[in-house]
Design a protein around this nucleic acid. Structure first.
Lengths: 161, 161
DNA sequence: CCGACAATGCAACAAAGTTGCATCACAAAG
DNA sequence: CTTTGTGATGCAACTTTGTTGCATTGTCGG
C-alpha cells in the first residue's frame, strides 16, 4: 500500500486515466488517508467533512475506481463491502485482517501466504480471476479495551444529502 | 464435506444438540443435498419444494446452525451470504471457489493451502477466529457455455411467504 | 449563445437481513 | 380434561446497502 500513501490523489487518478473532479479527489484522499479498507458509508462520512456529497455519486465513483483498477472491493463478514486503494502494482493481491468487534479491516502486506493460495486455484478447473483472503478475529486495540469498540467507524455526521 | 454427505439430517441436528423439527430437517437436508455453499434464498426455495416456509424462520434456523457449529456462513463477492454444512470436525476450515458468472460456490477440500494462511494470521497482533479463503473466477460449466449461466440458482418458485 | 457530454443530485426502488409481536403446537402441571 | 408455559413458526414492518432512471449542472468546442 506504499503507493497509496506516497502519491497524491490527483496523481493516482491521472495514472488510472480518470478525470479529476473535486469529489473524486476527496474520495481518493479519504481512502488513502485511512490506510485500510473502508465501507462506503465511512468513505461518505469522511468526504462529507470536506464537502457535501451524494450517496449515489459516491457509489458511482467507487465503481469507477474499481473498474479502472485504482481500488479494490472486498467483502467482510458483514453486509457492507469495503474499498481500499490498489497498491499500484496492478493485480498484486493482498489479504485483509477483519476485526469482528470494531469492523476495521486492515490491509495485509502483499505476498504473505497469497502465492500459495493462488496456486491452489490453479488446479481448480476454473478460470481464476482473483483470490480473497480474510483473517477474522479481534484486533489488538479491541482485545485491550474489552467493552468499547476501538478504532471503529468514522465519527462524521451520517446525515443524509 | 464427507460428514454432510453421509449423515442423516436428523443425526446432524442431534449431534449439534439442536431439537429436530420438520423445517429444520428440511433445511439441513437441502444444504446437505446441495453439496456446496448456498445463499439463504436458494435454501428457502429448496425447502419450499417440500413444505411452506417463512423467510424469517429460515434465517433464524440458519443463525442457529451457525451458532451451534453445524453450519458456516461465508461471504461471496455479492451481497448474499452463503451457508454450508460444517465438515463435522469442528473448526476445520475450508476455502471456496466462487463463480462470478453463475454465483455457485463450491467448497474446496480442507487443508488445501489453508494451513499456511492460518499461520499468516498468527503473526498478526490479533486474536484469530477464522480464516476466509475464496477463489473468484469462472467455473468450468460457465466457461464452456459462454452465454447462459450454468448450474446457477435453484429454480424453485421464489414466491413469498 | 448553443449543443453535447460527463458529473452530480434526487427520488424511488430492490435485495438481504432483522425486529417485534402474534400464533401455534406440544408437553408438563393441575 | 383443561390450564399454562415454552419454543418454533409466521407475519408485517423496518433497516442497511446498494442500484436505476431521470433531472440538473457545468464545462468545452463551435
Amino acid at each position: 500500500m506504499d503507493a497509496a500513501l506516497h502519491e497524491s490523489p490527483a496523481r493516482m487518478l491521472a495514472r488510472a486515466g480518470i478525470e479529476a473532479t473535486p469529489l473524486r479527489l476527496a474520495v481518493v484522499g479519504a481512502m488513502a488517508g485511512a490506510g485500510r479498507a473502508l465501507p462506503a458509508g465511512d468513505i461518505l462520512a469522511l468526504v462529507r467533512r470536506l464537502r457535501p456529497a451524494n450517496r449515489v455519486t459516491l457509489y458511482r465513483i467507487l465503481d469507477l475506481l474499481v473498474e479502472k483498477g485504482l481500488a479494490r472491493r472486498h467483502s467482510a463478514g458483514d453486509r457492507a463491502q469495503r474499498y481500499c486503494l490498489e497498491p499500484g502494482t496492478a493485480g498484486a493481491p493482498h489479504g485483509h485482517a477483519y476485526c469482528v468487534r470494531c469492523g476495521a479491516m486492515q490491509c495485509l502486506p502483499q505476498g504473505a501466504g497469497l502465492a500459495d493460495v493462488a496456486a491452489l486455484g490453479a488446479g481448480l478447473a476454473m478460470d481464476v480471476l482473483s483470490v480473497e483472503v480474510r483473517i477474522d478475529g479481534v484486533c489488538a486495540a479491541c482485545r485491550e479495551s474489552k467493552g468499547r469498540p476501538a478504532g471503529a467507524a468514522v465519527d462524521g455526521d451520517p446525515g443524509n444529502s
